[in-house]
Amino acid sequence: MRETIHQLEVLRYDPETDTAPHFQTYAVTCQEDWVVLDAINYVKENLDRTLSYRWSCHMAVCGSCGMVVNGEPVLSCHAFVRDYPEKIRVEPLANFPIERDLVVAIDDFVEKLTSVKPYIISAEERPVESGENLQSPEQLAVFKQYADCINCLLCYSACPQYALNDSFIGPAALALAHRYNLDSRDEGRSARADVVASNPGIWECSFVGACSEVCPKDVDPAAAIQQTKIASTVDYFMRFLMPWRKQ
């Protein structure tokens, strides 16, 4: 198999000794079928055991190995080394604090994800005896795309509004809220609206669309947010036109 030598420039940061991150370069001989994650694993195993990063499945489903490679947020297990020039610059996801090397602190996202109640909410409690909560394939197809999110956070790394405003709920969390709002079994739209339809929710989005461009799962968070804007606008005017109508 063909081999190529790549200069892997990795952003390093050690909170115990460093005041700021810096790049460290490793020369890595890569196989033709390697992805960037393979090159990083090679560094970890053979060149520098101090390098920290997250990964798990190596097949683009776990969502842990998101990194910024040559300026673009990607899953490092989904980015072939052969598609890059000799120099490959690997940085942690943008817009998150760096915990150590390529590991970012995602506490803010987890908190926001929780705040949009990303689970099925029923108006009345459904006892086990009531049986399955059935759904047709057509009803599933309505939201399936938004259920494919793997929380890899590439969208947050690409979103300039999240970069500029810490309070923005952000693409993935809003897409997931939309996924449950569209679910035929769910009755929690008004419960989610408190966060989703607030200023830091959908209204902080200016539809740059970068989130959808970098999404490895074609979730299209930008679409979810625009659809939520329309639905929330209808809700808003309905409250004045038909105040007796239950939300």
């Binding site: 929710g201 209204w203 329309i230 606008t233 809700d235």
Partner: peptide
Amino acid sequence: MATSNKPLVWAVFAA
């Protein structure tokens, strides 16, 4: 969180 009044201007923006 408070309900946003953005729909007011956003509706005109979209139209």
